[in-house]
Design a protein around this nucleic acid. Structure first.
Length: 956
RNA sequence: GCGGGGGUAGCCAAGCCGGCCAACGGCAUAGGACUUAAGAUCCUAGACCUCAGGGUUUCAUGGGUUCGAAUCCCAUCCCCCGCACCA
């Protein structure tokens, strides 16, 4: 049957909204505040993002069932240049972006309005709230929505930074930042928000080595300063025109691109003409530290774009250098035109400088030969280079050729040698990117030195220790992250917190030329949701949000009258907001994707600790993993893999929510698979139909009612303990599978009591509410329950009815045993006889229970002795002592209560009453007899094998 | 390199403070019921062996601890993620 899920979803969303149950206001109830880390406004979201958001809503809904006043606010993060570049691309009608927007349902008319950044932000804010979060049935307090670009939000951030300054946590020092000459600073990251190429580039620190060449210094850039003792020659590209630049009174020779890069990192670079590479080759220069005079050789592999376009040659440890030197030696004739003679070349011999386990004197040669590389053009040189470096750096030691560094570990020598050369003026540092990075605007990105960069000092020891200590008292999931977060906090150093350039965000309060960057303005913000509602309603304007205002409402500093005077906010409103803050904070749960583990969550914790008092520190963090596309993350910047509105139409919101909750643990990645989502949809269909049928059952009380009631008490307890750990998957398993199966068994067993069904139905629907709220409301209404299930109260577990469960388990296992015997014995049975155990056997269990309770414990000799002391048992001779022995050894770990079940259960009645049912299930007539019935039919004497919990079976 | 996480039956995926585990659940599969048929739904089966409810081998590989290990320890192989201005 086709059920119109969309209608049901819209119907209940409208009702919730009309009743205002999503709105969170301070009252007498205990509170629960949960957020998810708000998304960046960089485009449309995809089905993967809704996973975490759904968890947040479901957890909030579960807390509602337990009587909490739940606040679940949402917002967006628009800081950055995403909106700027998006608007620019729309404005210039970039076909890719137009297609992307249209594919996601943006109309031409809407598109026409999206040519400035704020329109883009507003547009997506609207999409996120209406097409995603409201559409998914979230009970969020929409009045509290905020965005990082709202002026009132900015006021809060400025306050936050003033507090950081007061705490001495803002510091200034030079910084090397990726920089576009057109757009200013850019972010280099794999998702390529700012850039169009080079997302995996890293900033590398090069050591610039200065080689004396007459009055000039030839400057080579190296990543391996520890190898300077092995320098034997110098590479210059003969086809390149090099630049002479003056720097600190020295005349440097570097490539043109290098000169440009140097100018971004040193202030005094002056141009002094050029020199051709071919005019340098054939001469010699003096190498730093070793003072060795080495020949300058031509090398076409010297790329002017990399480093300085000149390279010092260490053939002992650099596969490139080794292979090129080898080539020259073997093809000297080709180099005559550069004035290179055979004698010079022959005199160049590698110097062994590093001893590495598994390598000979010349690691570069070994690596090259091991890979069978014979030509300078072999692409595997890169691999050889990495291998030699890795092995040498971590396991190598400097040889005796390395002067004062002899015997030192390579990783240690690297720093020491570098520093020594810097101190002596033979070297300087330079930063460059590991690969070409191109800005969205098309310009190449370089590293620029920024002298007065502001940092937040997350390396602060005292702050780190307090934050780390607090984490031990938090609920952090998964447990691995709880254990690991201390390491993450320790590892944090200073973090650049402001930037310049083409960037939307809040101005830095101490110097407005800076704009606060994207992570730093999103740390303390959960607290702002408490205040945003007043800003959104217009009761408080940004200009009212003075430093004293926030000091008062957030920290309780100052007195109301003074603050009211200064901020122009009424005293009662001020007090009211202050009470709100005290009521709602601390935040109970901050939920976010795993990418936050090393960035957002740590700074979220640090900033709370730095600014807010002990009793306002966060209480919980939950990390969720991703829904991925085939092979890769479904990337939002690369175009949505599955637009959300389409998925909602196809599968229904509840099916998607159930899919997210149940398909796997929160803490593993899951590959998006529509077929799986469809199967969840079908499950919901079945639940709908079954629940509807259940509502039509009006019958009599029977034994099975007790069993169903017991099962549900167990499920309630199970759900409660699972949700204490926010284990939504277990909740889903219980509600959508176990409860469902038990109800079906109940019906199959002939259960039909209206009151029992009603009770079970009520709990069942409530249990499903957190995950599939629309279906739950619909069923709740159909069943005739009052109000919203979303606002109902979940019961406490009454505990299980062990004897009811024992009886039912007995019936099930007996049926299963009959089936087993029929299968194994492969006989065509026509009827089934079931014999329950003799009374004396139950008595042995009773004695065993007594012993277990007595504290002396259950032992074989003990039980045998006790049993044989009883005349009734003793009468049965050897069978009795054997059973006593068996019971004592097998039941030694069972609880006395369990033993009592064996001894006290009236198995004959239980099975007799179920005989009709068993006949139907088995398909044969079933007769239940007692082994104590002297007139019983028992041609094979099977009844003697019956024991409590396991009746004997005879088929004929 | 530093830090972290994994390898479970055809696939996905629970379990992993040792025993209740031959190992939850889903999907796919097989047999049966229902149906004119298909689909849906329901039942049953599911590593291997077994003519009476039993037994034998399994949870990357190899060792070890234990009365007992998918679960603890060690080693090995393989896979994945983060490493900074991207919430």
């Amino acid at each position: 049957m086709a059920r119109d899920y969309t209608d049901v979803e819209k119907k209940w969303q409208a009702k919730w909204s009309a009743a205002g149950i999503n709105m969170a206001s301070r009252d007498e109830r205990p509170k629960f505040m949960i957020i998810f880390a708000y998304p960046g406004v960089t485009g449309y979201l995809h089905v993967g993002h809704l996973r975490g958001y759904t968890y947040a809503d479901a957890i909030g809904r579960d807390k509602r069932l337990l009587g909490y006043n739940v606040m679940f606010p949402v917002g967006t993060h628009a800081t950055g240049n995403g909106a700027i570049s998006l608007a620019a691309r729309i404005k210039r009608k970039d076909p890719d972006i137009i297609k992307y927007m249209k594919d996601n349902g943006c109309t031409d008319e809407q598109l026409r309005g999206l040519t400035d950044p704020m329109s883009v932000v507003d547009f997506f804010n609207n999409v996120y709230v209406n097409d995603y979060w409201k559409r998914f049935g979230f009970l969020s307090d929409w009045r509290r929505f905020t965005c990082t670009l709202y002026p009132d939000y900015g006021k809060f951030i400025k306050w936050q930074f003033r507090k950081l300054m007061e705490a001495g946590l803002l510091i200034q020092k030079p910084y090397y930042a990726p920089f576009c000459s057109q757009c200013g600073p850019v972010a280099i990251d794999a998702s390529e928000t700012d850039i169009s190429k080079g997302g995996n580039a890293e900033t590398q620190e090069y050591t610039l080595l200065k080689f004396e060449f007459g009055e000039m210094k030839l400057v080579a850039a190296t990543l391996r300063p520890e190898t300077v003792y092995g320098q034997v020659c110098f590479w210059v590209n003969p086809d390149t025109e090099y630049y002479k630049v003056m720097h600190r009174g020295e005349l440097w020779v570097v490539s043109k691109p290098a000169a440009d890069k140097l100018a971004m990192q040193f202030d005094d670079i002056q141009f002094f003409g050029t020199v051709r590479g071919r005019d340098l080759v054939g001469w010699t220069c003096k190498a730093p530290i070793v003072g060795r005079i080495i020949p300058i050789l031509p090398a076409t592999f010297c790329d002017p774009e990399v480093g300085t376009g000149m390279v010092t040659s260490v053939p002992s440890d650099s596969p490139d250098d080794w292979i090129n030197l080898k080539y020259i030696k073997e093809h000297v004739g080709e180099y005559a035109k550069y004035g290179i003679d055979e004698k010079t070349v022959a005199s160049i011999n590698p110097v062994s400088i590093i001893r590495i386990e598994g390598y000979g004197d010349l690691p570069a040669r070994d690596a090259v030969e091991a890979l069978g590389i014979t030509s300078p053009d072999d692409p595997r040189l890169d691999e050889a280079k990495k291998q030699v470096y890795k092995d040498g750096f971590h396991a190598g030691r400097m040889r005796e050729t390395c002067g004062p560094y002899s015997g030192m570990r390579v990783d240690e020598a690297k720093e020491k040698i570098k520093q020594a050369m810097i101190d002596s003026g033979e070297a300087e540092l330079f930063h460059d990117l590991s690969e070409e990075v191109v800005c969205r605007c098309g310009e190449t990105v370089h590293i620029k030195r920024v002298d007065d960069q502001w940092f937040i000092d997350y390396g602060n020891k005292e702050l780190t220790e307090r934050t780390s200590a607090h984490c031990r008292d938090m609920e952090i999931y998964p447990p691995e992250y709880y254990a690991n977060i201390h390491g993450v906090l320790d590892w944090f150093r200073e973090r650049a917190c402001v930037r310049q350039g083409n960037w939307l965000g809040t101005g830095f309060p101490f110097d407005e030329k800076w704009i606060i960057e994207a992570i730093s303005d999103s740390t303390l913000y959960p607290a702002y949701y408490i205040i945003s509602v007043y800003a959104n309603s217009g009761n408080i304007k940004p200009e009212n949000m003075t430093e004293k205002f926030f000091d008062y409402v957030m920290l309780g500093k100052g007195n109301e009258e003074e603050v009211a005077e200064e901020s122009k906010v009424g005293v009662s409103l001020l007090k009211n907001i202050r009470e709100d803050v005290k009521y709602w904070y601390p935040l109970d749960v901050n939920l976010g994707g795993k990418e936050h583990m090393t960035v957002h969550f740590p700074v979220f914790l640090f900033n709370h600790m730095a600014i807010l008092p002990e009793d306002m520190q966060p209480k919980g963090i939950i990390v969720n993993w991703y829904i991925t596309g085939k092979k890769s993350k479904i990337s939002k910047s690369k175009g949505g893999a599955q637009p959300i509105p389409g998925a909602v139409e196809a599968f229904g919101v509840d099916a998607m929510r159930l899919y997210y909750s149940h398909v796997a643990s929160m803490f593993v990645d899951v590959e998006w698979n529509e077929e799986i989502v469809v199967s969840y949809k079908q499950r919901l269909d079945r639940i709908y139909s079954f629940a509807e049928d259940l509502m039509q059952v009006f019958g009599d009380v029977s034994d099975i009612d007790r069993w169903l009631h017991s099962r549900f008490q167990v499920h309630i307890a199970n759900i409660r303990s699972s949700m204490e750990k926010y284990d939504l998957r277990q909740l889903a398993t219980t509600a959508y599978y176990e409860m469902f199966n038990d109800l079906r068994w109940y019906v199959r067993r002939g259960g039909s009591d209206e009151a029992t069904i009603n009770d079970a139905l009520k709990v069942w629907i409530q249990s499903m509410m957190p995950i599939t709220p629309h279906m739950a409301e619909e069923l709740w209404e159909m069943a005739g329950f009052e109000g919203f299930v979303s606002s109902s109260s979940y019961p406490e577990s009454g505990g299980p009815d062990l004897s009811a469960e024992y009886g039912e388990d007995l019936i099930r296992s007996t049926i299963s045993d009959v089936a087993q015997i029929r299968k194994v014995a492969s006989i065509d049975a026509t009827s089934v006889y079931i014999y329950t155990a003799s009374a004396w056997k139950r008595k042995i269990y009773s004695l065993a229970a007594d012993m277990a309770e007595s504290g002396n414990g259950l032992t074989i000799p003990g039980l045998t002795k006790e049993s044989m002391a009883d005349p009734e048992i003793r009468n049965n001779g050897k069978a009795a002592s054997e059973l006593a022995k068996k019971v004592a050894s097998e039941m030694v770990r069972e609880s006395p209560a369990k033993l009592r079940l064996y001894s006290d259960s009236d198995e004959y009645s239980v099975l007799s009453e179920a005989s009709k049912f068993m006949s139907e299930e088995i398909g044969l007539p079933v007769k239940v007899l007692s082994a104590d019935d002297t007139a019983r039919y028992d041609p094979r004497g099977k009844s003697s094998a019956a024991v409590p919990g396991r009746p004997a079976i005879y088929l004929e």
